[in-house]
Design a protein around this nucleic acid. Sequence first.
DNA 1: ATAATAAAAGTATTAAAGTACTTTTATACT
DNA 2: AGTATAAAAGTACTTTAATACTTTTATTAT
Lengths: 143, 143
Amino acid sequence: MLSYTCKTAIKAVIYLASRAEDSDKAGMIEIAKHIHASEHTVGKILQTLVRQGIINSTKGPSGGFFINDSQRKQPIINIVESVEGDQVFKACGLGLSKCSASHPCPIHDDYKVARDLIEKLFREKKVKDLCDPVSNGLAFLIG
Amino acid sequence: MLSYTCKTAIKAVIYLASRAEDSDKAGMIEIAKHIHASEHTVGKILQTLVRQGIINSTKGPSGGFFINDSQRKQPIINIVESVEGDQVFKACGLGLSKCSASHPCPIHDDYKVARDLIEKLFREKKVKDLCDPVSNGLAFLIG
DNA sequence: ATAATAAAAGTATTAAAGTACTTTTATACT
DNA sequence: AGTATAAAAGTACTTTAATACTTTTATTAT
């Protein structure tokens, strides 16, 4: 249900956040390698995330991408909304612009329940909650 | 969460099913007009649906698209799977091919709950359930 | 200062989704 | 039989998303 770009963004952030906080910054080649994605694509995506304040980067030698402790505590929805826009969890299931509680489409209420659940999931799960949950390293990051 | 094509397909089928069963068949121009979509696009989509047995069509004069009573009773998921493929409600939230109950990704269980809910919605709602539910004609079909 | 590094930023290409158009084929009515 | 109708089928175009590449800029180390 999420775009490939969005899934890749989440995986990249999880990888970043899974590294020791005081370790060196990660370059986009390293990140791309670990999540099995194109380094160019990863670079583009991470640029967006830096601009949105989801992660940080520094240029130059020993530069790279990194994430701080307060960013580790942010919800996954921050990533999703940065990539997909902030209307993802607002849109009607049938794509009607005028669908609302007062002018509902036939599946309005049922769809809203499911959509709200996904929104809740991404809002409650923090970046750090997704780091190495099964003690199998980061094997789950490669698709 | 559904593609534009898929939403258009659902709307077209709802329009068809909302017509009196014994009325004339509907041409793609008529359908397109009522759901505010391009007639070419609608034609392409309906071709697919006919091939999948979701709806019917006849060629020639007084030909057009129509839907029978048993097709009216089919669930919306038939339309969704015809357009999006049958893996829509199977895929991992992070896009991992190897994610499964035994090798779950960090959001596997929570995501599955929401995804199953949407699948349930589309599986339980039948085409006829979506016809003219608020007695405002078919105003809800135009986005 | 200079050179090396690495992301930022911009541009170009590719792939996929969506839209438009054309030709063919089946049907019904003269 | 011949003609008109209307979808089927196939092709081409457009737009957008995704990927690849290039140039620029900031930083560090010498």
